[in-house]
């Protein structure tokens, strides 16, 4: 079981309120991702749930029981830290066994569970090494192993992949998702990378300046961002925002159109501009179009290889059904 409920939770450091009153429910078995720019309070929120920080006011319930004043060790949660936080003076085996040793399990049971976790995580060959002798990905697995042996009510991940290189990150992302499918335990995952959020989450919580901008499934957020912040944060490359006459035509203060929802051609289309930088990835092509009279640059994503070059004048057609409209306060219009 692992349902976590936050009820009017706030957190202040001195006079600075880093979490404004916040309500949130994470269902049992859910993979929830806290995402937001750095300094938005997502890590603080995770640490409040973990019990590593006290809430200033409000309550945290775990499985319906008030856990607000329960020390971290007693909350039944396991955490994987950004730096992995492995104990450098202990072997991998002892690292993974540490929580079991603290819980007072007997040696045989400790060993059984460590072996089991090591098998799941492909660490069996490394059990007698020290963390310093492992690669980044392996250390990450040890940290996860240390978390899973406890059979916690929920896993907390604090930007666990940010210290890995790009290729390894994709691999670990898949492994964590697999792990979630297999264990079916609640996971809360903090990241600043919206790609990780989109690919892993059942539920994304977008945070900004200590409050929740929007909660929803990845595709909910992609299709119907509640405001300009979420619209700009979710999706890559970023959504284009256009103000002024073009927006007013649709009865909005600002309109947003995603780069992948703009078609380009040599001659046809209501908008036109000059190609600046173009990025050819093979699978897609990104154009940064200037002199459109709409915004500084309009980013366009075209499928496959499209042969426009720097300085070419091109025409663009937005897909009318996926234009997002926002009012002067930045809120989504129906």
């Amino acid at each position: 079981m692992g349902q976590i409920t936050l009820n009017q939770v706030t957190k202040s450091f001195g006079d600075v309120e880093v979490i404004t009153p916040l309500d949130l429910t994470i269902e049992d078995g859910e993979f929830a991702v806290f995402v937001g720019p750095s300094g938005c309070g997502k890590s603080t929120l995770l640490r409040l749930i973990a019990g590593l920080e006290d809430v200033t006011s409000g309550a945290i319930n775990i499985d319906g029981k008030n856990a607000t004043n329960v020390p971290p060790a007693k909350r039944g949660l396991a955490m994987v830290f950004q730096s992995y936080a492995l104990y450098p003076h202990m072997s991998v085996r002892k690292n993974i066994a540490f929580p079991l040793r603290m819980a007072g399990l007997d040696k045989a049971e400790q060993n059984r569970r460590v072996e089991q976790a090591a098998a799941v995580l492909n660490l069996t060959d490394y059990l007698d090494r020290r963390p310093g002798q492992l690669s980044g990905g392996q250390r990450q697995r040890v940290a996860i192993g240390r978390a899973i042996v406890r059979e916690p009510a929920a896993f907390l991940f604090d930007e666990p992949l940010s210290n890995l290189d790009a290729a390894l990150r994709v691999g670990m992302r898949l492994e964590i998702s697999e792990l979630h499918k297999r264990l079916n335990t609640t996971m809360i995952y903090v990241t600043h990378d919206q790609v990780e959020a989109m690919t892993m989450a059942d539920k994304i919580v977008v945070l900004n300046a200590g409050h929740i901008e929007q909660v929803g499934s990845p595709l909910d957020l992609y299709r119907a961002p509640r405001n300009l912040f979420v619209a700009g944060f979710i999706g890559s490359p970023k959504m284009n925002f256009i103000e002024g006459a073009e927006a007013e035509k649709l009865g909005a203060h600002t309109i947003g159109i995603r780069p992948e929802h703009i078609a380009v051609s040599e001659s046809d289309g209501p908008w036109s501009g000059v190609v600046g930088v173009s990025e050819h990835l093979g699978s897609d092509t990104f154009f940064h179009v200037h002199d459109t009279g709409l915004a500084d640059t309009i980013a366009v994503r075209a499928d496959g290889e499209v042969g426009f070059r720097h300085g070419d004048r091109i025409h663009m057609t937005p897909r009318a059904d996926v234009i997002h409209k926002f009012d002067a306060q930045g809120m989504r219009l129906p």
Binding site: G51, L52, E53, D54, P71, P72
Partner: peptide, 8 residues
């Protein structure tokens, strides 16, 4: 790192 408990 600073909960009431650890501070006291």
């Amino acid at each position: 790192m600073a909960t009431q408990h650890s501070r006291s």
